[in-house]
Write a protein that binds this DNA or RNA. Structure first.
Length: 515
RNA sequence: CGGGGCGUAGCGCAGUUUGGCAGCGCACUUGGUUUGGGACCAAGGGGUCGCCGGUUCAAAUCCGGCCGCCCCGACCA
């Protein structure tokens, strides 16, 4: 085995009980090497041992969040919030490029407003938080803390819209919402979370449909490009759609434990809300008509997806485009050459920074290099540069990639020119890997026996024929806990017989267990 | 909401069976030596043992009640 690998030009280092033996001179000449074995930190439970525990360990140890004294609530710590800010920045740009403006609507919603739309209230009633007192005063009408803002925004829209000339209304808001959840998990399902919600009004049904589809496409492109997470796009079934919507579209991602996660949704609301909130306009033909609406949102849940799609047993792996820190420089400080090394490290930091790379110099002297390596790996920084006396002598820096642990000694003068490319490669490589995982864990399945067995055994996503009857959908859920994630846009045409009831299939749908 | 587990220093835990000075590791502070995969030595600081009540000369430990967190389910856009 070692002989074979040396032939391939790769050198190995013994990894004994999670520690390397350092072999001088190995880094020179731009050679690469690979680790035999990795057991770095014991603070993170291996995924294979307990996936939920792994997830908890990662969010805490990477300092993304901390638990609040209130169940289901959390502080998003600076490092976690920095990731959120990156996501916001990238998505906000896209929302504006497609013609939307940001605005802000109130947190409190009079209870009667929320209750106007029948399906909407039925869907959200079990999970609304209600304010009944302000100070000493018992409120005449209780106030709902927004679980979503359709109701309050529609109340404003009914006043703002009179003419077809006022349309379309294209507004987005970034805010927090509250849903009283029974079981909560950091980022994936919290009682309070951050998100954006777009709310638009249109003159025609076609325009609204186009908007709903367009924003779903924006989500797909955003999530795939920036978060390096491949998603399946499609439509939700009646059972799974948004409470009050005509149709719901969704992008679904597959986590590394084989469970699906709804990463973003876009709703064609039809005229359901316009009718009950009386949002009307006088059209060109002098007729008073109800507007056609959409709403769409993604949340801090995306951070959960990021963790579960890319993370490994050493912690987070953040795609470079959304990484708060893209490159960390760790100087190897020795007593004799401390000043020299630090100066060189600062030079590297400054040069990369000039290139627009988000670089951090970790020059803390109270921690050993090894400690820093582990910490930054837990935090998922894409690239680490090690710079020590030996590197100085060789005018080089040792580069280590987080996502595949490849190491390479780079000449100092080439560094700035090569890093942007290396970061892009890391981004692409993460996407490719996630895509491969999605493909390898997607199955075409037409036999119910086989289906129930495989769902239990392998998880993943199952493309199967479905007759369209909610009863069959429910039966699958009762039997297997899997739900229909979506009716894919670009799926194969319906053919064959329903997975459950054997009647002719109307759709090919993706089934899966989900978060 | 059901089943299971756990609450002792910032974190991880021992001590609870059999009541008797509240401990260990990490982290933290100070000084020194170090620094290429979680360095070492020395000296320190830090506690309402989840909360309330009961038994007892004496409770982290026994009894009753409550609260919270985690895991597995149920529920949930």
């Amino acid at each position: 085995m070692p002989a074979l690998l040396i032939v391939m030009g790769i050198k190995f280092i013994d990894a004994v009980a999670g520690q390397y033996q350092y072999r001088p001179g190995l880094w020179s000449g731009g050679r690469r090497r690979k680790l035999l074995k990795k057991s770095y930190v014991k603070e993170i439970t291996p995924r294979s041992e307990n996936y939920s525990q792994w997830y908890s360990d990662v969010v805490l140890k990477a300092e993304l969040m901390d638990y609040a004294p209130v169940k289901g609530c959390m502080a998003i710590r600076p490092y976690g919030y920095a990731i959120w800010e990156k996501l916001q920045e990238r998505l906000d740009r896209r929302i504006k490029e497609t013609g939307h403006q940001n605005a802000y609507f109130p947190l409190f919603i009079p209870q009667n407003l929320l209750q106007k739309e029948a399906d909407h209230v039925a869907g959200f009633a079990p999970e609304v938080a209600l304010v009944t007192k302000g100070g000493d005063e018992v409120l005449g009408e209780p106030l709902v803390i927004r679980p979503t803002s359709e109701a309050i925004i529609c109340d404003f829209y009914s006043r703002w819209i009179q003419s077809w000339r006022d349309l379309p209304v294209l507004i987005n808001q970034w805010c927090n919402v509250v849903r009283w959840e029974k079981s909560t998990r950091p980022f994936l399902r919290t009682s309070e979370f951050l998100w954006q919600e777009g709310h638009t009004c249109h003159r025609t049904s076609e325009e609204a449909e186009e908007e709903a589809r367009k924003m779903l496409a924006v989500y797909k492109e955003f999530i795939e490009t920036e978060l390096a997470i491949p998603v399946l796009d499609g439509q939700k079934t009646e059972r799974e759609k948004f409470a009050g919507a005509l149709r719901t579209y969704t992008v679904e991602a597959l986590m590394s434990d084989g469970r699906a996660l709804q990463a973003g949704t876009s709703h064609n609301l039809g005229q359901h809300f316009a009718r009950v909130f009386d949002i009307t306009f006088l059209d060109r033909d002098d007729q008073l008509k109800h507007v056609w609406q959409t709403s769409w949102g993604v949340s801090t849940r995306l951070i959960g997806a990021l963790i579960m799609v890319h993370g490994d047993d050493r912690g987070l792996i953040i795609p470079p485009r959304v990484a708060p820190t893209q490159v960390v420089v760790v100087p190897i400080i020795s007593k004799k050459r401390r000043a020299e090394v630090l100066e060189a490290a600062k030079g590297v930091e400054a040069e990369l920074s000039r290139q627009g790379i988000r670089v951090h110099l970790d020059d803390r002297e109270e921690y050993s290099p090894g400690w820093k390596f582990n910490q930054w790996e837990m935090k998922g920084v894409p690239i680490r540069l090690e710079l020590g006396p030996r590197d100085l002598d060789n005018r080089q820096v040792l580069l280590v990639r987080r996502h595949d642990d490849f190491r390479e000694a780079l000449p100092l003068h080439e560094l700035a020119a090569r890093l942007p490319r290396l970061l892009e490669e890391a981004q692409q490589s993460l996407f490719d890997k996630a895509k491969r995982f999605l493909e390898q864990n997607s199955y075409h399945c037409t036999d119910y026996q086989e289906f129930t067995g495989k769902v239990e055994e392998k998880r993943g996503l199952f493309l199967s024929p479905w007759c369209g009857d909610p009863e069959c959908e429910l039966r699958v859920k009762d039997d297997t806990r899997a739900t229909i994630r979506c009716i894919p846009f670009d799926g194969p045409p319906a053919e064959g017989r329903c997975l459950v009831c054997d009647r002719p299939a109307k759709y090919q749908v993706y089934f899966g267990r989900s978060y």
